[in-house]
């Protein structure tokens, strides 16, 4: 599957955003990367998607180096990034232009149904709410049937109710499509609700601090004791990661 091998990224302005991050995705899992703002989560996904190239290290997909975006890796950005001049259906179809018309239409219809937006196919993006737009973006990313889907804080701009609704949608999509998801988030509850495994990052420069396996059964009840215990474990790991470097964190 997808393997991040000692990834480091120094931006042209000298910022060391990521320092030697290694991660291996297992086939069919949801891996959540949790960390505060600015600890390099977006940088990590941009490297994994091939949008940016690492300063050191490499990204491997089944042993092949990923140096630029590939069809087998899909991406959902923090903002929906729908193309405003295309209808909802055309946006979903954006990445599958090479498919025959009938097949393309069937796939768009199926995906819009799965994200609950069948009635919105003909709408313009400007006529959608934030949550609806992000669902369209997820459908668009899934349309070419990538093996790995990267999600960069996809629900962080949404209100709590919409966020939970979209998390449920995402789990259903994952169960139906049986893909591998790499989800980046700053929301501990979101990570525990969705992931099979949580990786905690620490900042300055971005590194991995801890890994927490979650063997909570699905569907997960957010009010249950094991769920909340898992949340506490992740929260503990996060604050440990920050505490181990007192001078740095205080100075910043």
């Amino acid at each position: 599957m997808l393997q991040l091998d000692h990834l480091s990224k120094t931006y042209p302005n000298g910022t060391l955003a990521l320092d030697g991050v290694s991660l291996t995705l297992r086939e069919g899992e949801i891996l959540a990367v949790v960390g505060g703002s600015g600890c390099g989560k977006s940088t990590l996904l941009r490297l994994a998607s091939g949008l940016d190239t690492p300063s050191r290290g490499r990204v491997l997909l089944d042993g092949q180096v990923v140096a630029e975006p590939v069809a087998r890796i899909g991406m959902v950005f923090q903002e929906p990034r729908l193309l405003p001049w295309l209808s909802v259906a055309e946006n979903v179809a954006f990445g599958i232009r090479e498919l025959p018309e009938a097949q393309r239409r069937a796939r768009v219809e199926a995906l819009l149904g799965e994200v609950g937006l069948s009635d919105y196919a003909a709408r313009w993006p400007k006529e959608l709410s934030g949550g609806q737009a992000q669902r369209v973006a997820i459908a668009r990313a899934l349309a070419p049937e990538p093996d790995v889907l990267l999600l960069d804080e996809p629900f962080s701009a949404l209100d709590a109710f919409t966020r939970i609704d979209l998390q449920d949608h995402l789990i259903r999509l994952w169960q139906h499509h049986k893909r591998t998801f790499l989800l980046v988030t700053h929301d501990i509850e979101e990570a525990v609700a969705l992931a099979d495994r949580v990786v905690v990052m620490k900042p300055d420069p971005g590194r991995l601090a801890a890994e927490i396996p979650l063997d909570l059964p699905r569907p997960r009840l957010r009010s249950s004791a094991p769920f909340q215990a898992a949340e506490r474990a992740v929260r503990g790991a996060l604050s440990d990661a920050l505490r181990r470097e007192p001078q740095r964190t205080i100075l910043n």
Binding site: E68, V70, R81
Partner: peptide, 9 residues
């Protein structure tokens, strides 16, 4: 916006 084009190659 341009990155959407890049991600779909």
């Amino acid at each position: 916006t341009a990155e959407v084009g890049r991600i779909f190659r």
